[in-house]
Amino acid sequence: MNTALGYYVATIAVYFFVYVILELGYNLQYGLTGIRNVGNYVFTAFGAYIGGVLSLGPASTTLQTYILGATLPYPLPLVLGGVAGAVVAAALGFLFLYRLRAQYQAIVTLVVAQVAWLVVGNWVPLFNGYNGLAGVPQPLASTLGLPPVEYQFVFAAMSGVVALVCFGFMQRLARSPFGRMLRAIREDDTVAATFGKNVFGVQMTALVLSGFMAGLAGALQIEFLGAWSPSTWSVPEGFVVIAALIIGGTGNNWGAALGGFILPVGIYELTVLIPAFNSPGVGSTVIPALRWILIGLLALAFLWFRPQGMIPEPKPAFPPRAVSIGTPDATEGAEVVS
């Protein structure tokens, strides 16, 4: 295999695994629990930053400014990246899960993401501002001492293991009593609360777990790319994660994985990489613009033609909520409620 192709395949593989982790996490939040969070990419971002600064070493030895600089033994930066995502998720959860009406939940998450983006970008001592972090060392590269291409494959394999563990965990969780409770809350949190479920606690647990996975994905990305800045995690990138889950299938881990393949890998990364091989005669922004338009239209098409996604959620274990029982006049009861 030639070097360019090797890099290419390994890169695609890493992206696939990273997005599988992201989509599984987002599926836990939105697909299973019904949490309306548009700011999920903040968890990823903080996972990446923490994973980065804990590998970069003290800030005094680099030309960048950031907090917490250290060189922790691998895989501690990765794990702590996940923890960072979980902590941010918990903080966000306290803000928006507790007392917000449904329509406002999404707005608040978007606002928090925007504020985080502004603060990280402008407050240079935190994570080096808009320039972001660069020169993050690849984990275990010096220990392994492999040629670069082979190292790429090792990294891909490692991401694959993390993705596989997440997938196994999510499959077990979805089938567990806890998973059933998540779906019950998604269908109707008032009813769930009436039956004595601690809705806030359960949603919070789901959000924190999901934040952990998003943080892991972020840490993997910064380790692979070696750099991370606010331009890597702007609003459109956040949209890709949501759109991919809609396309793959909400509420289904296989759907989440498929979505992680189709949108971020199949369309996003392929269109990023293909023009790099054929020297472009078109303006540098045309291909990316077309790619984003395609992603947006694809999401709209799925929302219209197949809102359940390519692999729909399996049939629920309990019958759907009945509108009315035993009367020939179901509409009357429903009208009065509305």
Binding site: Y30, R36, V38, A102, Q103, A106, P236, F239, I242, A243, I246, T285, V286, P288, A289, L290, W292, I293, I295, G296, L297, A299, L300, L303, W304, P307
Partner: peptide
């Protein structure tokens, strides 16, 4: 059309989210 079909709340928000991405990148195009 989405409203008429009964798309609500968060899904509707995602529709407008997708629309904003499309519009913005038409401008970029």
């Amino acid at each position: 059309p989405f409203i008429r079909r009964g798309t609500r709340h968060f899904q509707m928000m995602l529709v407008t989210f997708a629309l904003s991405i499309v519009l913005e990148y038409v401008v970029v195009l």
